[in-house]
């Protein structure tokens, strides 16, 4: 049993940090709306990708390029289509695979870049054997990044029913909504993951300070309120505090991050090929620490040792200090 550790690289320096810390593969995206982490100061130019891939390959590490947003309608000039350009650039740079979500992008890749290995992004939300089988048959997809709607038991059953590899998120930011099927951000701000590669974008964020505390707003909507002694968190829409049925609560999800380190052995047994760490928006120091620690978890699990020490270190790296195992445990639902 060997588990592949797939690690985030939001910048060239994070890529080098992940490679040196023990990643088996890193994933990254171009500096535009073709990837789902289209934030200022992140991502790669074509030249940076070339260089990053050369560096990773010298260390025996694979590079996966996320082109996982949805192609825009009305692009008159195909030669200027950012998604088509991104596919060509990824192939040209020697990417080991591209991570795609959109039918149009998948169709273009399968037709015009038959040499590219295709992975299905979590944004495609393919959670059934039938849907995954369709992507494999229609486009030759070799691996699916599992939507975060499945329990470990369901992943085990699914892996019995499909012929492609699966990759499961184990650490980092967590969407309670099915990714690729959420328009909450564009409802409030006009910009969304599917259309723009952003969620709850920073230009719509506002913190209003008052004696009783700080209100964090997104496009004018109060998303959460923090006491003067509390550190005000980022107003990610689905992690906000809302009022429904007379109750105030974090209705959709508490401000928590995913930490499934304790489930690695069970995920491996369920037939998962690769473990994915979220965090392309994080700095190289964080990436190095998380990758190094997860490498220790994987090695402990693979040699039958108890990974408890490494798990404890990971708990301290969780954003905001609060963690969940998400949908992997059925009670989450």
């Amino acid at each position: 049993m060997t588990l592949e550790l797939v690690c985030p690289a939001g910048t060239p320096s994070a890529l080098r940090a992940a490679v040196e810390a023990g990643a088996d593969a890193v994933y990254c995206g171009f500096r535009d709306e073709t990837n789902a982490r289209n934030f200022p100061g992140l991502n790669f130019s074509a030249e940076e990708l070339h260089e990053g891939i050369r560096f990773a390959h010298r260390h025996g590490v694979r590079v996966l390029v996320a082109i996982n947003t949805f192609m825009r309608a009305g692009i008159a000039d195909a030669a200027a289509d950012p998604w088509k350009i991104a596919l060509a650039c990824a192939e040209d740079a020697g990417a080991d695979a591209v991570i795609l979500a959109d039918l149009a992008v998948l169709d273009h890749a399968a037709t015009h870049h038959p040499g590219l290995r295709l992975h299905l992004s979590v944004q495609a939300a393919a959670a059934t054997p039938e849907a995954i089988g369709f992507y494999a048959e229609a486009f030759g997809v070799k691996r699916v990044v599992l939507p975060r709607v499945l329990s470990v038991e369901e992943i085990a059953v699914l892996n019995q029913a499909i012929a492609v590899e699966t990759e499961a998120f184990v650490f980092g930011g967590l969407c309670p909504m099915t990714e690729g099927r959420c328009a909450l951000s564009s409802y409030a701000t006009g910009r969304s993951p599917n259309l723009d590669g952003v969620c709850s974008p920073p230009e719509h964020v506002d913190y209003a300070q008052a004696p009783e505390g700080t209100t964090a707003r997104l496009a004018g909507f109060a998303i959460d309120r923090f006491a003067p002694t509390q550190l005000a968190g980022y107003p990610t829409l689905c992690k906000g505090s809302f009022v429904a049925g007379g109750k105030t609560s974090h209705l959709f999800e508490d401000p928590v991050s995913l930490n499934a380190a304790g489930l690695v052995a069970r995920l491996a047994k369920a037939g998962v090929t690769a473990l994915k760490i979220e965090g392309r928006q994080r700095g190289k120091g964080y990436v190095a620490e998380v990758v190094r620690t997860f490498r220790a978890v994987v090695e402990a699990v693979e040699t039958g040792r108890d990974p408890v020490e490494a798990e404890r270190r990971l708990s301290s790296l969780v954003e905001g200090g609060r963690q969940t195992s998400g949908a992997y445990r059925k009670q989450w639902r």
């Binding site: 709607v149 909504m177 099915t178 909450l184 049925g245 609560s249 209705l251 949908a327 989450w332």
Partner: peptide
Amino acid sequence: RLPLALSSRCYHARLHGLHKD
């Protein structure tokens, strides 16, 4: 009302202190 998002979690159940199952 615009259908904006889906989840495997049931928010009606969560609001009432229940689980989906």
